Computed example of a mutant assay.
Amino acid sequence: MIQNPGFLLTVLAFVAVIGPLVFVHELGHYLVGRWCGVKAEAFSIGFGPEIAAWVDRRGTRWRIGALPLGGYVRFKGDMNAASQTDPAWLEMSAADRAESFPAKPLWQRAAIVAAGPLINFLFAIVILGSFAFIHGESRTPAVAGQVQAGSAAAAAGIVAGDRIVAINGRDMATFDDIRLYAQIRPGEPVSIQVKRGGERLERQGRIGAVEESDGFGNSFKIGRLGIAPGDPVIEPVSLWRAPVVAIERTGQIIRTMVETLGQILGGGRSVKELGGPLKIAEVSGQAATLGVESFIFFMALISINLGFINLLPIPMLDGGHLLFYGLEAVQRKPVSAKVQEWAYRSGLAMLLAMMMLVTFNDLTSFGLWERLSGLIG
């Protein structure tokens, strides 16, 4: 029986996950900014009141905030932590303007902004590559070793020995491809192409939906076809190939995120499935109880999530800045200050609304509202 983490372990695990990942993200901005000759005036891990702070010989104030929910690098010429341009930068001396962020060429500004999400992906790739080198790569063929009676696969006419070639037109190279495709599509209709005895057949069916528990009292619905693989195949991974495997796995995770987000936006999934900081804290504690490797793997997943979310084209996020730079490249001039101000306010409102939604979802998953209604009743 898996033990639930206590409150202290949950808090410590959350800080141990978020703190390093935020530092890595902001370090990407900082290092590329420094390489481009931009002065960083502040480097903050966390928001709110300072717990500790110091100033280095370059004049950068390094600070740790009381709320470990993010961070920022404020470059010279930035008006605030969201990197909005301070109109006063034009009044700086020539020497100060030379090391300010707004004065840099478009490609350098874009590189500085993109460095944060990209280093999060790189961080995850290093972890996943290390795991691939140590444990090998799963290459179990996409063959139905067994078919569960009454399952979605059985209803579609799949039999043991069938080679699953494609599902809804997507090639299935390994059994893991089948599992990853099915698990985020419970109840969805599918067209399954199989190879049986040299003959290629097409079967129509619907992915099954099963309720599963993670051992911590959390239940969730996932898709299952109802087939089991044959003998597992684990291939050793050389040191030179480990990064390739890690990049492929990172790409699979990002594709799953995109598809899941598309399902939510399209109404195929409930917004109740979105989680926030409280849920991350809970799962951080759970991952910590499963051992060091599980905890490190969870960090890799969160790092990919952090990089992906920051690339969304929402003002206030890195993706929003990159969107403005793309428009600037097309129209050969910066987006007007008025439009940027309107966009930043809209982006802030969107992020606050999203934060309220995921916090409500987190508290609901903890059963808070049911307990409160019980007290009131």
Rank of each mutant, 00 (worst) to 15 (best):
V292A: 00
I253K: 08
F324Y: 15
F7R: 01
A114M: 14
I304K: 05
V126L: 15
L261N: 05
G320H: 07
P236F: 05
V244T: 11
G6M: 05
V159W: 06
K195H: 05
E188A: 07
V258Q: 13
P5W: 02
G70R: 01
V335W: 03
L9W: 02
T60P: 06
A94R: 13
M257V: 12
E199Q: 12
F43V: 09
L311C: 09
P189N: 10
L352A: 15
R200F: 05
Y325L: 06
V24R: 04
K39I: 02
I45R: 01
T260P: 03
S238N: 09
D177L: 09
A160T: 04
E248D: 15
Q148F: 14
P5H: 06
G223L: 07
D96R: 15
Y72K: 01
V147M: 14
L118C: 12
Q193V: 15
P20Y: 04
D86C: 04
P313F: 04
G291Q: 02
L351N: 08
A114Q: 11
T60Y: 07
S100G: 10
Q286I: 07
P334S: 02
Y72F: 13
V283G: 00
F298V: 01
D162R: 05
D231K: 10
L67G: 03
T359L: 11
V113W: 05
T364Q: 15
S93F: 13
G197R: 03
D78S: 09
M316Q: 07
G208Y: 02
G197V: 03
G276D: 00
A53K: 15
E50H: 14
A228Y: 11
M350F: 15
V330T: 10
A156T: 06
P49R: 13
Q84E: 15
A52F: 12
D176W: 06
I2F: 04
G208T: 01
M172I: 12
A142K: 04
G291C: 07
R163M: 10
G205C: 06
